[in-house]
Simulated scan of single mutants.
Amino acid sequence: RECVEAGRHYGCSVAVDLLGLPDPVAFAASASELGVAWLDVHCAIDQQMSGADPLALIKAVRAVTDLTLAVAGGITSETAAPAVEAGADVVIVGGAITKAEDPAAATADIRKASDTGRPVESKLFKRATAESIREVLQTVRTSDISNGAHSQPCLDGVRQLIPGTFACGPAVTVWAPPGDFAKPVQAIDVAKPGEVLVITTFGLPPAIWGELATESAGNKGVAGLVVHGAVRDTAVIRERGFPVWSTHVCSHCGEPKGKGEINVTIEIAGQRIAPGDWIVADDDGVMVLPAERAVEMANRAADVMEAENRIRAEIRDNNSTLAKVVNLQRWEQEAGGGPRVG
């Protein structure tokens, strides 16, 4: 109320962002009595990264007020039209324009969608849910995931066998003694199509995987293999194109003694991997996305990728350099020592 009165004193209208209110719909219902001019339904960045959108709240707020209603937070050319249909009078857009390689074209698409009520398809700026996480993860790379997760490291020492291969999917985990290939082979039958086998023999040979296991995994639709240990028959694996990451390659294997476990929590390079955690592996390494954080990590990775797309476009279109585009000079310290205070 004090803000509204101050606004009147200076001849200003007051808008209220509903972000963070415990009951935004209840406030919206009484906002006009307070003299508020318009309301903003705002989907916070943390909510966006968890796969949320503001559409349901827009509908609920519109049902209780006739005030001008704005929407912000994760709006794209695909969601602008549904937001208007839900009751938004004003569409506020940030990243879908500022991170677009062609901001003018992106703006035009969003305006077209808002005016016509028909979404304009966009390949970027889509946020994952638990149901669509694979679609998003297939567009990013492990470096994007690392950047979005505050430089989380990949699994140290685990190397790609076939350059250019990529795998992502929920983990089927296995531990077995070095050379005992019984549980790793049995895990193929446990795995569902699109899942990734993650096996530890504690980083030691002999091999627990070869050409026959590869043939079996391919038939089952397994998305890839990560071995904290040794594989062999690599020429055949390369010929088949099956995505494999391992710490060792050797010619000899052990005997199937049946020791070990399938789908239990294991540890590789200091990182715990539980059944169902998401695995993304590419030329740079293997990243683990804990199941409870996988959607958020996927969306933050997509956010990183989108920002870098814009930087790349500025470097290319302006014949510039990375240091100039991101203004690295602002981080330079003055000559003569450490950070300046004051």
Rank of each mutant, 00 (worst) to 15 (best):
E2W: 13
C3T: 12
G7I: 02
R8T: 08
C12R: 14
L18N: 02
P24A: 00
V25D: 08
I45M: 05
S50I: 07
A52S: 09
D53S: 15
D53C: 15
L55H: 10
V71C: 11
I97F: 06
T98C: 15
D109V: 01
G117R: 13
R118W: 00
A128N: 14
T129R: 07
I133F: 09
T139K: 15
R141Y: 08
R141M: 09
T142L: 08
S143Q: 13
D144P: 03
A149G: 04
H150R: 15
P153V: 08
P153A: 10
L155S: 06
V158W: 01
R159G: 04
R159S: 14
I162P: 01
P163L: 11
W175Y: 12
F181H: 08
K183W: 00
P184E: 03
D189C: 05
G194K: 04
E195A: 07
T200V: 06
F202I: 01
L204R: 12
N219W: 12
N219K: 15
K220M: 09
G221C: 06
V222Y: 04
L225P: 03
R232K: 15
D233F: 10
D233E: 11
T234A: 04
E239C: 03
C250L: 07
S251M: 11
E255L: 07
P256Y: 03
I268H: 05
P275A: 12
D277I: 06
W278S: 01
V286M: 10
V288Q: 04
L289Q: 05
R293Q: 11
A294I: 05
V295Y: 12
N309D: 14
R310M: 07
D317Y: 08
D317E: 14
A323Y: 11
A323P: 03
K324S: 13
V325R: 02
R330C: 12
P339R: 06
R340W: 07
V341A: 02
